[in-house]
Design a protein around this nucleic acid. Structure first.
Length: 845
DNA sequence: TATAAGGTGTTAGTGA
DNA sequence: TCACTAACACCTT
C-alpha cells in the first residue's frame, strides 16, 4: 500500500504508540474535553477524554470574600464549582498580583449562554472570552500538530532530537543562559518533528436543481443528492450515483480513469454508504463543505428519516464537522489572505473557486460543462463530480503534501487546532501563540480595555485619511531611464525592528520612570530596558530560525525530501513573522496596541532615512526607495559594502542586495516602475498594464511595449525602441477606431467586493453592469467578477453579455490606452500627445 | 468572525 | 460648467 510505503521513511519515529494531536473539542454530553489523535501507522483516529481532569474557569480581581459578599449569584450559579486564589504576573504593571480563579462545571457557564458568570462580573472578569478548547491547550501545554506517546491513558510529548549544531546557530557566544537554550530547544522541536502522511478522503456532492445555475439551499435541502464523489489518499476513487427515471443513457460502472461508479435506486441507501465512508477516514476534505456539502447532507438525511444519532455530521454556527473526525474545508483555507500572500506567493490571485485555485496551483481545472448538472448523463455526471473531489484531494498533495505539512507547522507554531487553523485568520493564530506563552510564563492576559488605558492612543498622523497612524516612507522617484541599478533592502525590516528595539505591548511605554529616556525616534514613546518583551522575544526568535537555519537549509540541504520540508518550515515562519507587526495595529486583535504598531513604523522610517543620509555621504545616488528599499544608480561594490556594514553596525539590521537591474525606468510616480534584469527578464511594479482588471487588448499592447523594451541593452538603442512603441500604439488606436477588437478583448473585469445592494454612496460602473445583468435574472454574488465595456449611451457602460461592438466609446478607451502607455513613455521622455499628433496626421493625410 | 499604511487611476457626486 | 472630494478597485511594501 502506498500509505505504508510513505510512512517507512519515518518508521522508526512513528511506532504504534505515537500519535499526532490534531484537535481538542469539548464534549457536552460528558462535560469533558477530548483529544483527537491520528495514528500514522494505522491511519486511524483515536479519541481520548481529558486525562488531566481540567475544568473551565476565568479570573477576577475580586477577592473570594468580595465574591461571597457582593456576588452571591456567582456562588449560586448552576455552573459554579469552586474558587481558588492564584498569583499572576501583570505585565502592564510589571508586578505580581493576586487574582481569584472562578472554576466552573462547564464552559457555557463561564460565557456564551444567557446569564453566564462572566456577564455577572463584567468589568471584573479576565480571560473569560477564551474558547474552552484553547484554554485547555494553554493550561495543559499540549501542542496541536505534535507527536505524542499514548500509554495507559497518559499522554506524553514524544522526544524529538535537536542537534546542538542547530541551537548554536541561534545562541551566539555570550547569550548562553540555560533557560534561553531550553526555550530554543523546545521551539526547534516543533519545527523539526517529522510530519507523517495523513490518510484522507475528499468528498464532493451534486444536488438536483430544477433551475440550472441555481445552488440549492442547504438548510432546506429540498432536492435529491444525485451524486457523491470520493477520492482518497489510499487510492479510493469512487462515485455514488442516484438512479433517476429521467436519465437515459448507459449505466457505466467504470470511468476511463479507473473511477468506480456505484448506483443506488434509493437515496436513503446512498446516504448510508456515504456515512460509511465518512467514518472510515480520519480526515475529510471538502471544498466549501462547511457551508454546503456537509450541512446539505445533514439536513437532507434528517428529511430522509435518519435519526440524529445515525448522522455523523455535527453543524456549528459557521462550520461543519464529521463526528469524531476532522473536516478540512479547503475553500476557507485557501481564501485566507495570509496563506495567499506569504505561503503561496500570490500564485492564485482571484482565489475563491476550486477552478481558479487548482488551475493556478495544479495546472488543471474543473471539467467545463455546457449542460446543467441535472441534465447530464450518468457518465457525464460521474466524470464531472469526480474531478471536483480529485482536485480537492490534489490540492493537499501537490509538492509532496505541501499543504498538509504547512497546516501542521502552522498548528505547532501557533498552538492552534486543525479545526481552527483552517478556519480562522492570522490574527487568531498569533493570538493563540501569544496567549499560550502568557499561560506558560504565568502572565495575566490583559483585557483590551486595559491596554488602551495604560498605553493610550497613537501620537502620529497618517498621510492617508482614515488611517490611524503614520506608516512608511516612499521616496519620490527620479523620472527617467537609468542603467546599472542596484536595489538594497532591509531583510524583514519590521520584525527586525521589533526584535532589535524590544517592542512589545508591555515594554513600549513601560511603567518604569528610568526607562523614559530610552526614546523611540519620531514618537513620544519610550521602551523598556529592564525586561525582554514577550512578543519581541518570540518574533525575534522566529525571525532568527528562519534567517539563520531554515532559509539556509532550504537552499543547501542535499536530500530533496528534507530540503522541501525545510522550505515549508521557512514559509510557515514567514507567515507569522510578516504579520507580527500588523496585528498590533488592528483593532480586532485582542492585544491591539497602537503605540507598538506606531513605534514599529517610526523605527522603520528611522532606518531608511538614516541609511539614505549615509548613502549620500558615500556619494551614492538614490533614485527611489519604498519602505525598506533603496534603488542606487551605478554604485561601486565598495560603496555598497560600506553601506551594508554601516547598517549592520549602527542599526543592527541586515541590509542585503535584493536585485540588480540592467536598467530601470521611472515615470515619476511612486510604486510604479519597470526594471530589466541582466538576462532580459522584466520586473513590473504597479503599472496599469499589469492590473488584473485592465482590458485584454490594452494588456496585449502593454506586453508588446515591454517586449520591445526588454531587448534594449544600451542607451543608444532607446531611440529605436521609442519609434517602435509609437508605431504599435498608433496601430492599436486604429484597430480600436475600426472596431477590430472583440468585446471580450475590450472588457474591464472588476470584482464586486460587497453585495450589490450595499453600494449606496456611489454606483461604480461594474455595479451598473451587474444591476443590468440582475434585471435579466442572473444571480450576482459578492466576489463575482463583472465584465463590462464602456459605451456611448447615457449610462456609459454595458455588461459584456448585453453589449454590441458598435456601441463602444472609443474616446474612453483611447484615454485608457493613454494612461497605460504614458506610465512607460514618460520615463522614456515621450509625451503621449506626440503619438496622438502622429495619429492625427496619419488619419487626416 | 478581516494583520498594517502608502500609492495610482477612474468615476460619481457635490456645491459654487 | 468646473473644481474638488469621496468612493472604489487594485497594487506595493
Amino acid at each position: 500500500m502506498e500509505n505504508m510505503a510513505e510512512i517507512s521513511a519515518d518508521r522508526e519515529f512513528f511506532d504504534d504508540n505515537t500519535y499526532i494531536l490534531l484537535t481538542v473539542r469539548y464534549y457536552g454530553d460528558r462535560r469533558k474535553a477530548a483529544l483527537l489523535l491520528y495514528n500514522p501507522l494505522t491511519g486511524g483516529i483515536e479519541k481520548i477524554y481529558d486525562p488531566y481532569n481540567h475544568k473551565p474557569y476565568f479570573l477576577t480581581d475580586l477577592s473570594p470574600e468580595e465574591i461571597v459578599d457582593r456576588h452571591s449569584d456567582i456562588i449560586l450559579h448552576r455552573g459554579f464549582d469552586h474558587l481558588e486564589v492564584v498569583e499572576k504576573y501583570h505585565a502592564l504593571l510589571d508586578r505580581k498580583i493576586s487574582m481569584t480563579k472562578i472554576v466552573a462545571r462547564d464552559p457555557l457557564s463561564v460565557g456564551g449562554s444567557r446569564n453566564s458568570m462572566r456577564d455577572i462580573l463584567r468589568d471584573h472578569a479576565w480571560e473569560a472570552h477564551i474558547k474552552y478548547h484553547n484554554c485547555y491547550i494553554y493550561d495543559t501545554g499540549l501542542i496541536p500538530g505534535m507527536p505524542y506517546i499514548v500509554k495507559n491513558g497518559q499522554i506524553i510529548l514524544k522526544k524529538v532530537e535537536v542537534s546542538d549544531d542547530l541551537i548554536k546557530k541561534i545562541v551566539h557566544a555570550g547569550a548562553k543562559r540555560e533557560a534561553f537554550i531550553k526555550e530554543i530547544r523546545e521551539w526547534l522541536q516543533l519545527l523539526q518533528a517529522p510530519i507523517p502522511r495523513f490518510r484522507r478522503l475528499a468528498l464532493d456532492i451534486e444536488v438536483f436543481s430544477p433551475v440550472p445555475d441555481r445552488i440549492p439551499s442547504p438548510s432546506e435541502a429540498k432536492y435529491e443528492v444525485i451524486a457523491v464523489s470520493l477520492a482518497a489518499s489510499d487510492g479510493l476513487r469512487k462515485v455514488l450515483l442516484l438512479e433517476r427515471e429521467e436519465i437515459g443513457g448507459e449505466k457505466v460502472t467504470n470511468l476511463d480513469n479507473g473511477v468506480e461508479v456505484e448506483y443506488f435506486n434509493d437515496e436513503h441507501v446512498l446516504f448510508k454508504k456515504v456515512f460509511y465512508y465518512l467514518e472510515r477516514y480520519p480526515i475529510i476534505l471538502t471544498f466549501n463543505g462547511d457551508n454546503f456539502d456537509l450541512p446539505y447532507l445533514k439536513h437532507r438525511a434528517t428529511k430522509l428519516g435518519f435519526k440524529e444519532e445515525e448522522i455523523p455530521i455535527v453543524l456549528g454556527r459557521d462550520e461543519a464537522y464529521v463526528k469524531d473526525r476532522i473536516h478540512v474545508d479547503l475553500y476557507r483555507f485557501f481564501n485566507n489572505k495570509a496563506m495567499q500572500v506569504y505561503a503561496f506567493d500570490n500564485r492564485y490571485r482571484e482565489a475563491r473557486t476550486l477552478d481558479t485555485i487548482s488551475k493556478a496551483l495544479l495546472g488543471e481545472g474543473k471539467i467545463e460543462h455546457l449542460k446543467a448538472i441535472s441534465e447530464m448523463s450518468y457518465k457525464e455526471l460521474a466524470e464531472y463530480s469526480f474531478r471536483d473531489s480529485e482536485l480537492t484531494l490534489k490540492l493537499t498533495m501537490f509538492d509532496d503534501d505541501l499543504v498538509m505539512k504547512l497546516i501542521i507547522l502552522l498548528m505547532r507554531i501557533s498552538k492552534t487546532t486543525i479545526d481552527d487553523i483552517t478556519r480562522t485568520g492570522i490574527s487568531a493564530w498569533i493570538k493563540n501563540m501569544l496567549y499560550f506563552e502568557h499561560r506558560k510564563k504565568n502572565y495575566l492576559i490583559p483585557r483590551p480595555e486595559e491596554l488602551t488605558r495604560y498605553k493610550g492612543d497613537t501620537a502620529t498622523k497618517a498621510i492617508i485619511k482614515g488611517k490611524k497612524y503614520l506608516g512608511a516612507i516612499v521616496i519620490d522617484p527620479i523620472p527617467g531611464v537609468f542603467f546599472n541599478v542596484t536595489v538594497l533592502d532591509f531583510a524583514s525590516l519590521y520584525p527586525s525592528v521589533i526584535k532589535q528595539w524590544n517592542l512589545s505591548y508591555e515594554t513600549v511605554r513601560c511603567p518604569h520612570m528610568d526607562c523614559r529616556d530610552n526614546r523611540i525616534p519620531g514618537t513620544p514613546h519610550w521602551v523598556c530596558r529592564k525586561k525582554v518583551g514577550l512578543s519581541s522575544f518570540i518574533v525575534g526568535l522566529l525571525r532568527d530560525f528562519r534567517v539563520y537555519i531554515y532559509k539556509v537549509l532550504a537552499k543547501k540541504e542535499p536530500d530533496l525530501r528534507l530540503r522541501r520540508q525545510y522550505d515549508v518550515v521557512q514559509r510557515a515562519l514567514k507567515v507569522f513573522i510578516n504579520a507580527s507587526y500588523g496585528v498590533f495595529g488592528a483593532e480586532t486583535f485582542p492585544l491591539y496596541c497602537p503605540p507598538v504598531a506606531e513605534s514599529t513604523t517610526a523605527l522603520g522610517r528611522h532606518a531608511i532615512i538614516s541609511s539614505l543620509k549615509k548613502a549620500t555621504e558615500l556619494n551614492l545616488v538614490i533614485l527611489y526607495g519604498d519602505t525598506d528599499s533603496l534603488f542606487i544608480w551605478n554604485p561601486s561594490p565598495e560603496q555598497i559594502n560600506r553601506l551594508i556594514e554601516w547598517s549592520e553596525k549602527k542599526l543592527g539590521i541586515d541590509l542585503d542586495i535584493d536585485k540588480r537591474y540592467k536598467w530601470v525606468a521611472f515615470s515619476g510616480r511612486k510604486k510604479n516602475y519597470l526594471g530589466i534584469y541582466p538576462d532580459g527578464r522584466v520586473d513590473i511594479k504597479g503599472l496599469v498594464g499589469k492590473k488584473r482588471n485592465t482590458p485584454e487588448f490594452v494588456k496585449q499592447l502593454f506586453s508588446n511595449i515591454i517586449s520591445i523594451l526588454s531587448k534594449v541593452n544600451r542607451i543608444e538603442q532607446l531611440d529605436r525602441a521609442r519609434d517602435d512603441i509609437r508605431k504599435i500604439t498608433h496601430e492599436n488606436y486604429l484597430k480600436l477606431r475600426n472596431r477590430l477588437f472583440t468585446l471580450d478583448e475590450l472588457a474591464f473585469r472588476v470584482t464586486l467586493t460587497k453585495s450589490l445592494n450595499s453600494y449606496i454612496k456611489t454606483t461604480p460602473q461594474h455595479v451598473k453592469a451587474a444591476r443590468q445583468l440582475e434585471k435579466f435574472g442572473k444571480r450576482i454574488e459578492v466576489g463575482d467578477v463583472i465584465s463590462f465595456v464602456k459605451t456611448r449611451d447615457t449610462e456609459g457602460v454595458k455588461a459584456i453579455q448585453l453589449a454590441r461592438i458598435d456601441e463602444i466609446d472609443d474616446e474612453k478607451y483611447l484615454e485608457y490606452i493613454r494612461t497605460t502607455t504614458e506610465q512607460i513613455l514618460e520615463a522614456l521622455g515621450i509625451h503621449f500627445d506626440e503619438i496622438m499628433g502622429y495619429v492625427q496626421t496619419k488619419i487626416f493625410s
